[in-house]
Design a protein around this nucleic acid. Sequence first.
DNA 1: CCACATATGCTCAAAATAAGTATAAGTGTC
DNA 2: GACACTTATACTTATTTTGAGCATATGTGG
Lengths: 331, 331
Amino acid sequence: MNKKPKSDTNQAVVLDLGAVIATVDADQPKVLLVGADGSDARPSLPSGPFDPEGDRTMEEGLRRWVEEQTGLTVGFVEQLYTFGDLFRDPDALAGGPRSISVGYVALIRQSAAKRPAKSDWFDWYRLFPWEDWRNGRPAVLDEVLKPKISSWIDEAADAKAKRARRGRADVAFGFSDAGWDADRVLERYELLYEAGLVVETVIDGRIKTRQNQSDTLAWTGLPLHQDHRRILATALGRLRGKIRYRPVIFEVMPIEFTLLQLQRAVEALAGAPLHKQNFRRLVAAEGLVEPTGRVSSETGGRPAELFSFRPDVVRERPAPGVRMPRGRRTR
Amino acid sequence: MNKKPKSDTNQAVVLDLGAVIATVDADQPKVLLVGADGSDARPSLPSGPFDPEGDRTMEEGLRRWVEEQTGLTVGFVEQLYTFGDLFRDPDALAGGPRSISVGYVALIRQSAAKRPAKSDWFDWYRLFPWEDWRNGRPAVLDEVLKPKISSWIDEAADAKAKRARRGRADVAFGFSDAGWDADRVLERYELLYEAGLVVETVIDGRIKTRQNQSDTLAWTGLPLHQDHRRILATALGRLRGKIRYRPVIFEVMPIEFTLLQLQRAVEALAGAPLHKQNFRRLVAAEGLVEPTGRVSSETGGRPAELFSFRPDVVRERPAPGVRMPRGRRTR
DNA sequence: CCACATATGCTCAAAATAAGTATAAGTGTC
DNA sequence: GACACTTATACTTATTTTGAGCATATGTGG
C-alpha cells in the first residue's frame, strides 16, 4: 500500500467477482447455481468480471453483472472472502494467468427470486447433507462419515499426526464433548476434502479413488466446479454466525410473515430445530418485529398473526439478531 | 468463476497484500506503521506485492514479504477484507492501473515484536481516540464529536435525510438508548469521514475546511495514508468481535502471564474496563488457561500465579473466547 | 509491626434461558 | 354442531449465567 509493487509481478492476475446468491423458499435454504443442465460438467457459482474502468466499487460491479446475467436485483450484499489459492485454479497451474476471486454473499427474498436462465435454485443441503440437523442428527454422520474419518485418522503417518487429525475432527464434527458447532461449516468441508471424502478431492487428483470409496462419495453431497463448494461452505458458516447478531434473516423473508415462517427460515439456515415458544419470546424481547394487525389463515390451524420487520431496532440494540437456544449445556 | 472474463477488462488491476500487524505491549494496543519519520507524509500500513508465480496462497505471500521487509515472523494471520473502491486510489483516478488491496490482520506477541527498520509501533488509540473507554467515556466524544455530529445532522438537505443521519449516528455512537457497541469501529470512522471530521476527508478533497474545523481535526486522531485508517478501523472492529469467541488474545500474550496481564490485554483491544473478579471467573470457567505452578512477583502486591494458554480448549468449547461483561442492561 | 498493594475466593441478587404446561382459535370430518 | 386435529400464543418454573461487591490471602516497603 505504501509503495506500488513492480507492475510486471502483477500483470498475470485476473480478478473476478463471485456470488453466493441465497434465499429461503418454502422453508428450504436455496442457492443459485449455473450450468446444472444435465451435462457432465459440475454446476458452479455465478460470477462475473470486475471492470476496473467502469465499476467504482466491487460491490457495485457485482450488482451490475448479477442484474445483467440473471435479471435479479439483490438486496443485502456482503463481501465474504477473497480466494486466491493456486491449487483452486487449473488454468494457472497450466501456465495461464492467476485467477483471484472476490466472493460475496447476497440475500434475496423468495418473492423476488425468479428462476434466471441457465440457473437453478439448489437446496443448500444437497451440497452439505451433514449440515442439516433440523430432523435430528443426520444419519450420514454416523453411518458414513464417522467411520471414514476414523480410518483417515488411523492412516496418519505417526502418533503425533494422528493426534492432530483426531483433534481437528473432534473440533469440527463435535465428536468429543464439545458438541456440534453449527458455524464450523468450512472446517468440516475442508476436513472431508483432505480426507478424500468428497468428490472434489478425487477430481483434483489429490488422492486416488479407493475400494469402497465411491459409494461414500455418493453420500457426501453434490460436487461443484473447482473450489465452489468450499466457497459455499464459507458462506454458510458466515451466514449462520451472522443471523445471531444482525437482522439479516429479514432479507430473505417476505414483507409480512408469521412467526413460524420466520422460525422456519432461521432453522433452514441454522440447520437446527428451535424451541417454538422460546423463539417467539426472544424475537419479541429483541423487538425485531411488529404486528401488522393482519392474520394469515394458510396455516391449517389457528390463524397466525402477521408481523413485519422493524428496521429501527438496530438503533436500540447493540446486536439485533435472532438468538438461538443451543440446548442446556452442563458444565 | 464459471467463465473467464475478457482479459483486457482486467489487465489494469494491481493486487497487493496489506497487513495490520498488531500486538499488545505494556497493556497498550499497538499497530505497526511505516514512514512516520517526521516528514510531512502520513504514515501508512505496511504492504507488499502478491507474486502470482511464486506465492501459492496469498497468506503465504503475506508472510513472505512481512518477513523480508520487517524481519518479523507473524503467528496468527487472518484475511480481513478486500479493498477496491475507486476513490481510495488517487493513482487510478489519474488514469493509472486500478489498485486492489487484500487486507490481513496479523497478531504477534510483544516479546517477538522488535522494532523493524523504518517502522514504528503506534498506540492504536492515537488513531481512534474515541474508541478508548478504559478510563471512562472519552472526553472527546461529548466535547468535540457529539456537537459536530449534531451540526452534520442538521445540515442534511431535508427531513428525511436528517432522520437517516440521526439514525446512523445513534447506532454508531450509541447516542440513543442502545448504548455504545464497541464492535462498530468502522461505522463510527465512516460517519466521521463523511461528516468531514477527520483529516482524510479534507485531504481527499471531499469537503473544504470550515471555520473552526481545524481544531476539531486536531482532536480526531492521527491521519494515515489513503484509506489506511479505514482499514485499521475494520481490523479493530473485527478483532474486538473475535476475541469473544476465538482465543485470539493469546496470540499477543507471552507464553506465561498473570490473569491481570491477560485482562489488561483484552481491555486494551476491547477498549473497555472489565470487572476483575468476574473476568477471572469467566476465564476459569471457560477452561482457557491452566496454572503453570510458577508465580510472578513483579506486581507490587501479592504475587500472581502464572498461567499459560491451554490450546486444547478449542476441542471442548463451541466458542472459546474471552467473555466480556457489557454492563447490566435494563430492558 | 504497620500501611499498602495486588491476588484470589466467595456470596448474593438480578437477569436470561430452556423447557414445559395450559389455553386459544382456527380447519376439516362426520 | 360435536369432534378430532392443527397451529398459535400466553404463562410457569427451574436452572444457569451474569454483575457487583465483600472478605480474605499474601506479598511489598517502611
